[in-house]
């Protein structure tokens, strides 16, 4: 059977025109609110257009018209079945104090694994430096392996922070961008079923463990704490959170204990991944500023006790924030 196309078009065209008008209005102003009658009318038009598409598809091979109707139905469908939360306004304070710590707590097992793998790396790095003196140059970054901690401490104390004079802000910017990039990379590697994230975490642990042991054995524990704590108390947890996010992604990819299709599993963890990434970026900004303007200044410019106290307070505040914040507002 073949449709009487001109008659069909003259009957259906007003419906399509009206639906297009509604869609243009909606697409041009996404925050638009319709009253009930308008919403019902829009849905009715969508149903009519869907019926027309079915009619055209089964009664003729008219491809041009079919394409037009598919396009129209697809546009209307996208507006009718839009996901909840797509248009929610962003409230920074609520996000920062409730959603972010809530997302960290919601995936506490992934965080525990992230910490565990990093600690394992630390042990490996420490053991490598302890038992193989040549490992130091291979493992340690930024020339740390080329000198003893005592030599570096002496150099830093003589320099009194002059090497960064007039360059702190730029150095801070480089630290922020580099650390954030590495963190997001660790997160993204969750797509390798978490394996890439585990490697990044372990490698970071190896570097950290080797440096810590090197300074402790050389009797430079105070310098180490004064150097690392002010920025490290935020930067290292940020990397651990990036690892947590990567492992959450990896778990969604693998799907242990979850029979849902992978795309549904990924869909479920996506809001938390976004939240964690935002929190990590903020932590890295803070850590970059502190590293450039505080960590790089040592005694006699800044007493170790002040730096250690500051770093310890930061760490405690961060722990309290992540454990407690937002609990009263229904976050996990």
């Amino acid at each position: 059977m073949i449709l009487d196309l001109p008659r069909f078009l003259s009957n259906a065209r007003p419906v399509w025109d009206e639906l297009e008008k509604y869609l243009d209005e909606l697409e041009n102003s996404p925050d638009l609110q319709w009253d009930l009658a308008q919403t019902e009318r829009f849905y009715r038009l969508y149903q009519h257009a869907s019926a027309h598409l079915a009619e055209v598809r089964h009664l003729t091979a008219e491809r041009e018209l079919g394409r037009y109707l598919e396009n129209l139905v697809a546009r209307a469908y996208a507006r009718i079945y839009v996901r909840a939360g797509s248009k929610r306004r962003f409230a920074f304070w609520h996000w920062f104090t409730v959603q972010f710590p809530g997302a960290v707590r919601a995936h506490s097992r992934a965080l525990a694994l992230s910490i565990g793998i990093t600690l394992l790396g630390c042990l490996f790095g420490a053991a490598a430096v302890q038992f193989d003196k040549t490992a130091k140059t291979a493992i340690m970054p930024f020339g740390h392996g080329q000198q003893t901690p005592s030599e570096r401490v002496k150099k830093e104390m003589d320099d009194r922070g002059k090497h960064l004079s007039g360059k702190q802000a730029r150095f801070s910017g480089q630290l922020i961008t580099n650390n954030t990039r590495v963190s997001f990379f660790a997160l993204g590697l969750g797509m390798t079923f978490g394996l890439g994230t585990l490697i990044v975490l372990f490698y970071n642990g190896v570097i950290l463990g080797s440096i810590v042991l090197d300074y402790v054995v050389d009797g430079q524990t105070m310098f180490l704490l004064g150097w690392l704590l002010p920025h490290g108390s935020i930067e290292i947890p940020a990397i651990l959170l990036a690892g947590q996010a990567g492992l959450v992604l990896g778990h969604a990819m693998i799907g242990w204990g979850n029979r849902e299709p992978r795309r549904l599993r990924l869909r479920r963890v996506m809001p938390d991944l976004m939240t964690l990434a935002g929190g990590i970026a903020l932590m890295m900004i803070w850590a970059g500023i502190i590293e450039s303007f505080m960590s790089q200044y040592h005694e006699p410019v800044l007493p170790y006790s002040v730096k250690i106290a500051f770093g310890t307070l930061e760490l405690l505040a961060l722990i309290v924030f992540l454990v407690r914040s937002g609990r009263d507002e229904g976050a996990v």
Binding site: Y77, R83, G278
Partner: peptide
């Protein structure tokens, strides 16, 4: 770019697909 189900993307989808660009 749109959701795999033919819907507009949520903010989380936009952020995640762009964050994974380095990979």
């Amino acid at each position: 770019v749109m959701d795999r189900d033919g819907l507009p993307m949520t903010a989380a989808q936009i952020v995640v697909r762009n964050l994974l660009r380095p990979v």
